[in-house]
């Protein structure tokens, strides 16, 4: 799984976006990815797996009172985007996603054939 900087592809992904921080952990069963997307409600989170590209996108929706003027903004854009390239041994059809309180957890299992197997050594 390699990190690729957001590439300008379609018109939809042309808008500037924040790069969310992630943790990526691999064990024998697959890869677990955590991403911090604070301010994104469940219905504004978009996950897409296309060929070997995983795209995480989210729109921030905050309750802002009418007429509010920002005096200091560290989160200066209303959306997040991050694109990853999946490697071949990962089963992109079986990705499992959980999203709670702004944290996304993705489980990407390894394909059956890529699961570790102990090779028996026969002594003749």
């Amino acid at each position: 799984m390699t990190d690729t900087t957001p590439v300008r592809k379609q018109s939809a992904s042309d808008e500037a976006a924040l790069l969310p921080p992630v943790d990526v952990i691999e064990d024998s069963s697959g890869i677990t990815l955590f991403a911090d997307l604070p301010g994104v409600p469940k219905d504004k989170l978009h996950l897409q797996v296309e060929a070997d590209t995983l795209t995480i996108e989210g729109e921030i929706a905050l309750d802002v009172p009418a007429g509010m003027e920002a005096s200091h903004a560290e989160v200066s854009l209303p959306r997040y985007r991050r694109v990853f390239t999946l490697s071949k041994e990962l089963d992109s059809a079986k990705v499992n996603a959980e999203f709670s309180q702004g944290v996304l957890k993705l489980l990407i299992p390894k394909a059956e054939y890529a699961q570790p197997r102990k090779v028996e050594v026969r002594v003749l």
């Binding site: 911090d36 604070p38 003027e69 560290e74 309180q101």
Partner: peptide, 25 residues
């Protein structure tokens, strides 16, 4: 800048609004 949690501060004539971006807590 770059501290956790990231903060946005804004105001209206009636109130001061502080947003702290602290996911998963």
């Amino acid at each position: 800048r770059g501290g956790f949690p990231a903060m946005n501060v804004g105001g209206t004539p009636q109130s001061v609004e502080i947003y702290a971006f602290a996911p998963g807590i």
